[in-house]
Amino acid sequence: MPDTLIFGMEVFLNGLMAGVLYALVALGFVLIYKASGIFNYAQGVMALFAALTLVGIMEGQVPFSHLINAIFGTEVHHFGWHVPALLAILFTMVVMVVLAWAVQRLIFRHLVNQEPIILFMATIGLAYFMEGFGDIMWGADIKKLDVGLPQGINLAIDEATFGLFGYGFFIDNLDLWATGIAVLLVIVLVAFSQYTKQGRAMRAVADDHQAALSVGISLNFIWIMVWSVAGFVALVAGIMWGTKSGVQFSLSLIALKALPVLMLGGFTSIPGAIVGGLIIGVGEKLFEFCFGSGQCFGGIINLGGATENWFAYVLALVFLVFRPQGLFGEKIIERV
């Protein structure tokens, strides 16, 4: 087998796993958009906030310690305990539910029946607020997150591929775990929406608000629930990202990659978010490999790297021109 193909396969697999993270953030967007028509710009910041909170709780960090110390002249930073990862994840989830409640109660409850653009603006405000709030609460330094997920090269895959191709693939254990967890998460979400009362109510609200009200569903309750579920998805994404590259504020920027993912997959399609995420993940890695660093076709095209920064957006643009409804969206037919 030619080397390029073998290297390409490794790049493909790594792209697939990078795509899982994009897919997770996009999934959070889709959930909220479907249920309430809100395009939640803050989804990425929610992942950051969740990861920050998780680290803070695990490390026994005193929230708002900078503020407290500045006001009272004290020197408190840590409670002096460590919370086990699983318990800390549970606490973080409670925080995300409270956040969901607060967002609904303090913001969107007052914006019922407003134009989508106004709701969108509100989420931009929310994003900046949460970023600042997370900063004040937990501090702006980059934090290490370790919830016990295995990291480093997967030796089994390395050996197996070495036996097959004479070249061992470098696949990170963390990526494998991330993929497994994401798959599990999607299965749980699908089961929840198909088989539970709350899930059915959620689908009903996503479909028609008036009809949902008439069968006794509280929109307010469902919206809080959906924001909580999106908060949970954000937490999972935040854990993976944070473990990989530390919990830092650039996380909220990476989340913008979810935008091209949504343009590919369609804003209302859960399978679309997943497939779109994978395509972007694989696409940008392969494109960088082939044309960014010129390793395919004898290097006829070599753009000199850093294509990962823009590839996703250009691909989304192409899609906007030829298939504006996304891969899975219904065809948009203008009524005249």
Binding site: R203, D207, D208, A211, L213, S214, G216, I217, S218
Partner: peptide, 21 residues
């Protein structure tokens, strides 16, 4: 939704169904 929970069901002049189901 509270009225509905009390046992009052309704239909709409302009039909409100869950079209996707």
């Amino acid at each position: 939704y509270q009225v509905a929970q009390q046992g009052i069901a309704r239909t709409f002049q302009n039909i409100a169904l869950f079209e996707g189901m």
